[in-house]
Design a protein around this nucleic acid. Structure first.
Lengths: 341, 341
DNA sequence: ATGAAAGCGCTAACAT
DNA sequence: ATGTTAGCGCTTTCAT
């Protein structure tokens, strides 16, 4: 708790203050090798007294080890990603590793930049959302020589390992449940995000499964920006005005689905009798709505955990072999807005 | 795009591949000093061809410069913090600086640990939520010798700079508006989080302003964990069952307020006639509810921006002097759940 | 149990 | 416009 340190403290300062060589100080601070209890205490006391904070930059350079795991995700606003992070942290908390987050805003160029930036700090591993990356990004991931886990999506080929769900299948399963319940005049409401590959794949799986039964989406509505709940309301109004005969609305996420649900309930429309609804994700929010929206769990926590476990396993000495293609199965919740078939 | 690089590439590799000294390669890669166009191109080509990613660890050690800003926040689940981050990133995007996020889960010990961890990477600045820190944390912040901005709260004394709103005042203002509208039998609903100092201060300001008019909170209800929307519902039911004569419910955040609103509307209770409601934060979600919940904007984006601006100003050479005690004024939104006085 | 020497991959400062 | 030298603060390795 001394004052005005214009120059940050170094090991040497602790060494001088404690009368012990830098090397021994280093050993104490890292709990390495044998150090007598007496020396240990002296060093610890001196370090604390001075307020020494080790310089990991120097340490990393010397040891060629960096206890960071780069986690690259499209957004923090989606709640899905913070949950994945929670799963990752749960696992990393028991290790030396530390997650560092980078955000891409769904932009490939930004992903490339963020990845480059993070790799330049020589992390021990990378967890990155999605399987779609620019060639340059893929090359960097390959060249990094560290474990790479691509998460959230399994419809494609990973650079190294992958953990997620098949969004195509998620879309198909929901389509099947909807058809089985007897709905036939189906509308789709989603985000105007050509770069959200997972939403796109769900949509593709959905239409494909409908087509198999000779059903086509009758109308669709897209939005971008703004409050998802409000947009859900507005889009629902708009699509039903255009196509009043729709008997089911499939939303690309729970937030807009919730907005739609609130709108329909206000209008006094019978859900799921007259119109059925379903979203995607299983967000916690849904618990508090007047009716529980049908949805599909995206296994976010589990994805985070499994991804982190792959990283830690690979980093053990020697590397522990683990399953590197983890395909989780999302479960459908019928809630109160989708009749059971 | 070459293969199997067990050893990461170094400047030296690029130097050899391009037939130019390491120093010149370094200059090219950082756009420093004069380099002939011809050399420049040769170096860039070699670097790209090899897939070289600079080692920032070595660079930082040599230059004693780290373009990172440590951002320490309590949680990512609260949406408030991602928004602050957005503000920070907006400003940092135009600079060399990069935000790195650490999460404390509202735990002082974890804050201390995260801070220590981050400082050991020698960031160029720190942005940290709140004014309450352990002595050790405060000592570290002091000793770091870098700009430190404490955000969100201004009721207290910062280590260095601060940007935020007065939560005490926010509580007072809301109390005044409620009293002015004629409500007198007031219930409070909040989180069971003794460590959320900002919520605590709002509560203190609130009760203080009520007391000044001889009004006391008639009942209160606390929750922890779970879906805030569902909890808001449940708590509202519980408090009204106990105290059916309440005519106003003040929620410590918008999420539980929204749950309460949905509950009351379902029950057919006249809002704001029979019961008025207010929350805190101004979350985007509220836009989509059947009625707009009264709330108070926490100026999150602006806080992020201003904090980042203070950091960048201080880091200029020479440091640009800026206001370091920025107290923003939250505006009250009456929405549809609080009568105007 | 402790210390001394070398060097991690860069960049600052100084030549040329 | 380009190269040379020294050294950032640690850890590794090898002595003692």
């Amino acid at each position: 708790m001394t004052d005005q340190p214009k120059r940050p403290l170094t090991l040497r300062d602790v060494s001088e203050a404690s009368g012990v060589s830098e090397m021994t100080v280093s050993r104490v601070l890292r709990n390495r090798g044998d150090v007598s209890e007496r020396t240990r205490e002296r060093v610890l006391a001196a370090a604390k007294e001075l307020g020494y904070v080790p310089n990991k930059i120097a340490g990393a350079l010397a040891s060629n080890r960096v206890n960071l795991v780069a986690v690259i995700i499209p957004s923090l606003k989606n709640m899905v990603f913070p949950e994945v992070l929670t799963g990752i942290n749960e696992v990393l908390e028991d290790t030396e590793l530390q997650a560092v987050v980078g955000v891409t805003d769904y932009l490939p160029e930004k992903e490339e930049k963020v990845l480059y930036e993070m790799l330049s700090w020589r992390p021990s591993g990378v967890i990155i959302a999605g399987l779609e990356h620019s060639d340059a990004a893929r090359a960097m991931l390959n060249a990094a020589g560290i474990p790479v886990v691509e998460i959230m999506d399994t419809d494609g080929t990973p650079v190294d390992a992958m953990v997620g769900i098949s969004h195509r299948r998620a879309g198909r399963e929901m389509a099947k449940a909807i058809l089985k319940a007897g709905y036939r005049r189906i509308g789709f409401l989603g985000t105007k995000m050509p770069l959200d590959h997972r939403a796109r794949k769900r949509f593709e799986g959905f239409t494909e499964a409908l087509a198999k039964e000779g059903v086509e989406i009758e109308d669709r509505e897209f939005y971008s920006g703004g409050s998802a709940l409000a947009k859900g309301r507005e889009m629902t109004r708009a699509i039903l005005e255009r196509s009043p005969k729709l008997d089911f609305l499939y939303y690309s996420n729970d937030m807009i689905g919730a907005g739609g649900l609130l709108y329909l309930l206000e209008k006094g429309i019978d859900v799921p009798g007259q119109i059925g609804l379903a979203g995607f994700n299983g967000v916690e929010l849904l618990q508090g709505l007047p009716k529980r929206l049908a949805t599909m769990d995206a296994c976010r926590l589990e994805i985070g955990r499994k991804a982190a476990e792959i990283i830690t396993a690979r980093l053990e000495e020697p590397p522990r072999e683990v399953e590197t293609q983890v395909i989780l199965t999302p479960t459908i919740s019928f809630g109160d807005t989708l009749k059971r078939g």
